[in-house]
Design a protein around this nucleic acid. Structure first.
Lengths: 205, 205
DNA sequence: CGAGATATCTTGACACTGTCAAGCTGAAGT
DNA sequence: ACTTCAGCTTGACAGTGTCAAGATATCTCG
């Protein structure tokens, strides 16, 4: 109720982003409500708009936070080994773990219909996260196969991981319907990485 | 204004689905409006609800139509060749072309937050579409590498294609920002297929 | 110390929304 | 001719996002 200090205002922005993630996870993005976020944060319905401009601004801030987390966690994973192939696998595991630990953040990160895709920070964070992956693929190319098209191979890796995160619930259901024991997502990441790297090592584009 | 015959009612359902796809493409799914669909179809705001139950029902019908189209077009593509490797590439091209020709259908097809993921037809169409892909991968395993885990390899293919369709706008932008000439999506499909198949041929799980 | 500026809210209004219920109309069935 | 039914329309309601105006506490400056 009382006006906030700068620190309190920053705290409120963080509370609003946490409430946003909570509402997305509980209700689905399709039923997202800015007023519900305000209620959970204990402020009036107009407060989020003051801090973030509008609903798109708030969701964009959440997407930036998500891609920043993705970048930091994939960079940390990459630093855990000097073996380029193992590095790619660890990056994949980190990617999927961020997707599971921050589902709302990652869900909005690739939704041009609800976030501002032109936002500079969103693009910068996305470029940084992609860079970690591309560096790992480049290392593989340098040590095992200089013929590999690093750019395209990096695109394939990201597409595969992004597709896995999004499709995993559906693929799991397909497996269950076929009576096949579903794989854990970590297991799939390792299998995917193995198959992808095998292709990279033998590629002769 | 006048009550419809059964044929006219079916026509209206089709008109509503076409208007739905149009609104999604123009406004984005995040700003989708059922009343706008009704306006474009020239009926009252309650008519879509009568035919489809509610907004989720309408979007689910669109998703089913999309997956059915995907199944039919990937099956047709698969029938165009007897070479298993070329078949997989053609399936990938067909997948991406459906994604580009029916963006609204494919956008809602994987959105559990706006469609009814438990709808039997949605699952049946999804299973059928996946089956075309899995058959192609199985043929590759039988002719080139019996050690290949067909299920996981199929999952990888679908994840990669789905990820490509969704990420292609963002990846294209990353390429342009880096001064790299962006690849066409068909070119990427061919490169992806080549890399994936190379991995499949040499896999020894 | 008081006045003015500023940041950070709140309140209220507006137009739009999805859903539901009641009612209308024409065709089909008895 | 009456009843039933499918396929709508109209109207109401509660919730929504955004905007404008106003309130309040803090900060700055003379």
């Amino acid at each position: 109720m009382t006006p906030a200090t700068e620190t309190e205002a920053a705290d409120l922005r963080q509370v609003l982003q946490e409430a946003t993630a909570e509402v997305i996870v509980e209700r689905g993005l399709g039923a997202f409500s800015l007023r519900e976020v305000a209620r959970r944060a204990g402020v009036s319905h107009a407060a989020p708009g003051y801090h973030f401009g509008d609903m798109e601004g708030l969701l964009t801030a959440l997407a930036i936070e998500g891609l920043d987390t993705l970048h930091r966690q994939t960079a940390a994973a990459a630093a855990m080994t000097t073996d380029p192939i193992e590095r790619l696998r660890l990056i994949g595991v980190a990617y999927v773990q961020v997707g599971m630990n921050f589902p709302a953040h990652m869900e909005v990160a690739f939704r041009p219909d609800v976030v501002d895709g032109d936002h500079p920070s969103l693009q910068t964070c996305g470029t940084s996260a992609f860079g970690v992956l591309e560096d790992a693929v480049r290392d593989i190319a340098e040590t095992h196969n200089p013929k590999l098209d690093v750019r395209k191979a990096s695109h394939l890796c990201w597409s595969a991981m992004q597709g896995l995160v999004e499709l995993h619930p559906k693929l799991t259901r397909l497996d269950e319907m076929s009576g096949v024991p579903a794989s854990s997502i970590d297991d799939l990441v390792s299998s995917f990485t193995s198959l992808l790297v095998t292709g990279f090592l033998h590629a002769d584009d």
